[in-house]
Design a binder for these strands. Sequence first.
DNA 1: CAGCGCTACCACACCCC
DNA 2: GGTGTGGTAGCG
Length: 547
Amino acid sequence: MTRKWETRLKQIEERALGYEKKPLPSVYRPRLSKPEDPPSIWKLFHRQDQAFNFVKSCKENVHVFALEYKVDDGRRIYLVTTYAQLWFYYKSRKNLLHCYEVIPENAVCKLYFDLEFNKRANPEADGKKMVALLIEHVCKALQELYSVSCSAEDVFKLDSSTDEKFSCHLIFQLHDVAFKDNIHVGNFVKKILHPALHLISSQEDDRIRNPMDHKFSHFPETPLKQEISYNQMSPDKDIAKSWTLNSKIPERQESTQQSNPDLSFLVVKNNMGEKHLFVDLGVYTRNRNFRLYKSSKIGKCVALEVAEDNRFFPKQSKNMSEENQNFLFSLVTNVRFSDSLRILTCDTSENKRKRTNLVNSTSSSVETIEGFQCSPYPEVDRFVLSLVTKNEIKGGIRRWNYFFPEELLVYDICKYRWCQNIGRAHKSNNIMILVDLKNEVWYQKCHDPVCKAENFKSNCFPLPAEVSLLNLFKEEEEFTADETWNNEAKNPGASADAAWDNSTDDAYFLEATDDAELAEAAENSLLSYSSAGNEIPDELIIEGLQE
DNA sequence: CAGCGCTACCACACCCC
DNA sequence: GGTGTGGTAGCG
């Protein structure tokens, strides 16, 4: 008995000594493996808005994913992490089986489609052929409406079909082109499928359709061609003017556009025998969850895989597996920023009207349009405004865009045109201020064709302390908050953080969660990492951290 | 204890012919 | 009967 006590005492003393040598950090920051590596981020939330708030406070390039965790329950939990970290735990497909990309509202994104039909209700439908025809139609539309060239070789086709149901996703990999957000994607898709919508709305036979139908142009409303082009010059930057111009275009143009294309191939029947579109138009809503490559819906075991007739093949990369590349290309919001990136927009006429009214009603006041003037980073906005305010001239933010992968905020400036390239203000072209949050610098570019021709980019200047320190402060706040939460054993992120941690301290691991629901979710899919081991191959760490 | 963002649908009120 | 409104079941 005494001997047993002695050995146990000795063990405890040894452990105490160990802790003295390597004290636990006061702030818990899980790491990949090496202390010099950036901290890993793996946080779970019950609420989507909490997840997005955390993303905002995060300096790293993180994204929100939704995880289904209970059969026959729509409930999801939200995971915030980087693409690399997610892939690291995701790729084995032993856990995280039912994951969705959350396409944030206002996030620049790719053109994407969800296509489906019931095979039994449509015995003669040829899915492959329908997809090919759709792609052809979409490419034609992109060419006509935006002068964007693409083909089936730019379309990543993922398939999730069963004997019962044809189901696939298309993710367009356009060159240096993306949409402003998924609402604009939806407007574009609805616009170009308008003739087909008409085929299903009318119960009657085609022969007795309203004769007016024949007047419908191929693409009924001209989209807002006011593209935010960072490398292309738009002579008149007066947005109100260009909107007015655009809003007047519609019907006039129809004569120049081609006649009604035959989109009858898009019409399918649902289980009830009712006519529906092959293209699911319900996937273009705010914060839409879009199933990830290699994920299945909960309760089903059919995952999205590269379609056998997929024609998009990413260039092979030396330091990344093919699967990892597939994963990255399949992500709708994984849009790379480039100097020549063009952002396509497609407003509904309603929105156009609303915006035009807004512009008109506020043009004289200092405040401008909501959503256009303020980015999610008010501190950065303030700093940018300070940069474009000199003496009498008070510049403003005309619009902003945030690029997730690069953590780059691009501000289109109005009423202030001083360009560092020419050392004076441009006469008719506006400038841009780019804020690189990752590297904590800002620089200036501009819309002037001459400056753009030489690809002018000013020197980088460090962000002031109040902007770059902002992240640090937020981080501290976050951790303080977490600690409080941990004390209350309510921190939903704790369990997964522990899972990510390689320190194998059982005490830490176990105390991570006593929340029954999360624990269950964790057991189901998330926390099997303890058995995944701590050995992370070096090449993966590099891959993981380089992004 | 705990998802989210819609749309289609229904009931009802109100108006006009 | 046409139109607007408000609430909700249920879909994706």
